[in-house]
Simulated scan of single mutants.
Amino acid sequence: MAYVHHSHDVHVPAHEARVEDYLALLKPRVMSLVVFTAFVGLLVAPGGINPFVGAVAVLCIAIGAGASGALNMWYDADIDAIMSRTANRPIPAGRIERDHALALGLVLSAFSVCLLGLATNWLAASLLAFTIFFYAVIYTMWLKRSTPQNIVIGGAAGAFPPMIGWAAVTGTISIDSVVLFLIIFLWTPPHFWALALYKQSDYGAAGIPMLPNVAGEQATKVQILVYSLLLVASTLVPSVTGFMGPIYSTVAVVTGAYFVWLAWVLFRTTETVAMKKAGRSLFTYSLSYLAVIFLALLTDHAAELLGWL
């Protein structure tokens, strides 16, 4: 099946733009997870950071994530108009003009990177700049419409925030921060492919080569199971290296076992309605799973600082 680029002739009068529409451009739900993982990376990093500087760093990462969202919606306005999941976003719904989204994204990108560099260090700022570039250009403009591996490679953009938080404190990249990156990187494919399984028609209509549309449902279910196993294995690394203690280890084992179980149920399901239901179950669980893993990292670290471990 050939996939073609759509034209970007979406131009609608922004006659109803409200504050909440501009906030929607920043993808606040995605931003909340980005901010939380960055916050955890910042807090578990060795050495500590001035609370005010730390707050500024997290704010910069949040603004950078919002800038990425705005740039993504600017470029994807054509396909957003086709997909039921995204048709009511501010640009395709006609509440904000595409050029306004582009301007907002560029201004917020420059502001967040410069402020982070001045407040912490330029390694953290460089990582933030690269993350915005990776999501807006490498993923949105190139990978998303050209390869079924879009989510695998593009997932790197969402995996950088804890590394940025870590770098803001330490000015370095370490094995532990790379493991935090790896957890999110490996979480992304099963999370989005589970969504793609029950939203196949949307992606097909928009011409996005998501794995189920290109390789088929069975191949997608195999990949989901493989990545789920790799994901759970990566969450156990902090326990093995001694970076985290028994609280984190227990949570990682229990929540990981259920993640793999849901992936296995999906893999074994062949009937279409049941498969879509299983895909939705895994997608829904995966949303809370990542938050719980990072909350466990934070809890274990706090317990160690307080001398409870």
Rank of each mutant, 00 (worst) to 15 (best):
S146V: 13
S109H: 04
L236F: 11
I208P: 00
R18N: 03
N72E: 13
I96R: 05
S32G: 00
T140R: 10
I173Q: 05
A24I: 03
T131Y: 03
D80L: 13
N72L: 14
I184T: 11
L180H: 09
F134P: 01
V30G: 01
A194N: 10
G64F: 12
T269R: 12
A206Q: 02
L26T: 15
F181Y: 12
F36H: 04
R89Y: 08
C60A: 10
V260C: 09
G54P: 01
A77H: 09
V273Q: 05
A67W: 12
Y139S: 10
L33N: 02
G207W: 03
V240S: 03
E217Q: 13
T131N: 09
M141N: 09
W193D: 10
G307I: 08
T269D: 09
M210N: 03
H191E: 13
S32W: 07
G154R: 10
I173A: 10
A119V: 01
L23G: 00
A77L: 07
P238V: 15
T147K: 11
Q218R: 15
W264E: 11
L266F: 09
L127M: 12
S7N: 06
V253P: 02
V232Q: 11
Y22S: 02
A77R: 15
H100K: 13
S177V: 10
I151S: 05
T131Q: 09
L287F: 11
V222A: 12
L71S: 07
A196R: 06
P28L: 08
V137D: 14
P90Q: 07
V53N: 02
S126R: 01
A67I: 14
W142T: 10
A205E: 04
L186G: 02
R145F: 09
Y248H: 02
V265W: 10
F185R: 04
T270D: 15
E20F: 08
V10D: 04
V169P: 00
I132K: 05
L266K: 13
N150V: 09
P92R: 07
V113C: 06
L42P: 02
L236G: 06
R85S: 05
R95L: 06
F52W: 14
G242Y: 07
D9C: 01
R268K: 15
P46E: 15
K199P: 00
H6D: 06
T86C: 10
G41Q: 14
V226E: 06
S112K: 07
A233H: 08
A38Y: 08
S234P: 03
A205Y: 00
R145T: 12
N50E: 15
F111Q: 03
Y135W: 07
D9V: 03
